[in-house]
Write a protein that binds this DNA or RNA. Structure first.
Lengths: 140, 140
DNA sequence: CGAAGATCCTTGATTAACTCATGTATTGTC
DNA sequence: GACAATACATGAGTTAATCAAGGATCTTCG
């Protein structure tokens, strides 16, 4: 039962951490003109990887595809992202950040990552933590 | 910039992890008759510590006090928790799990902790992780 | 002792995210 | 070329959350 206790405590820590991060985000979001869910989406839209189909975004966001349509429309409206047809499949739309969107994403990362509790750890601790989390996530 | 990269990746891992956990929770919640936000509240109501004032709950939950009133009422309605007056201060109400509520909380922990990605780590890794997260949270 | 101010919870109205059901377009298969 | 399957869009409806205002209790200070 001891092992269980640790697992529960770990989970509590992770949830607390994620709560603190989203809370900090929220404080800076108004300045960026984003809501929390839009920020989550922007966070997901990495400029250095292949564009994500909307359906895949829904999976990563754990929400309904129709909701992604809504969020995408809002980002488009603000000029932060564009829906583009998939080159190989006419049914699929992908969502890509515009230059403005990339800037906002940078600000978001700056806002959150630079001040997260995790940033307080030194480099070797961060690497250690990264390895542990990587292993845990791989096992899932 | 390298350190920043790690911090960003770490944050991504934590968010992914918390997303997976809440997703898993969601799958089992219907059976327990709870919504996600109610589950978060139940999770917070540890039977082994002093009862929490509603206002403090609002802080921990990062939401408005009036929302806590609403959630508390729902838990009460289901017989899972009780609002009790604070012994020393007539303004304050505390929220306490009933026996039924404690049972539901156990099931919730069982559901989530036992199957979280973190449970896949061995005991020494879990302890290591716990120490790192503890340090990070203490710094915040 | 009593009034002013602060703190805590509640109530009601409003907003916004999200889901569900349905519709339309495109692709793949037989 | 018809049929099933997949992907996104649209519209209605649900629900959680915020905000503003109110009543109750405690604290401070004249």
């Amino acid at each position: 039962m001891v092992a269980d206790e640790i697992a529960v405590a770990l989970l509590g820590q992770v949830m607390t951490l994620s709560g603190q991060v989203t809370e900090r985000m929220r404080a800076g979001l108004e300045r960026l003109g984003l809501t929390e869910s839009l920020a989550n989406l922007v966070w997901l839209l990495r400029p250095d990887t292949d564009p994500l189909p909307l359906r895949k975004i829904a999976g990563l966001l754990h929400c309904d595809p129709s909701n992604v349509t809504l969020l995408s429309a809002k980002l488009e409206e603000r000029g932060l992202a564009e829906r583009r047809p998939h080159p190989g499949d006419g049914r699929v739309r992908t969502l890509v950040l515009t230059p403005d969107g990339r800037r906002v994403r940078e600000q978001l990362i700056e806002l959150v990552a630079r001040h997260s509790p995790l940033a307080g750890l030194d480099e070797s601790e961060q690497k250690q933590l990264h390895a542990l989390l990587d292993k845990a996530l791989a096992g899932a």
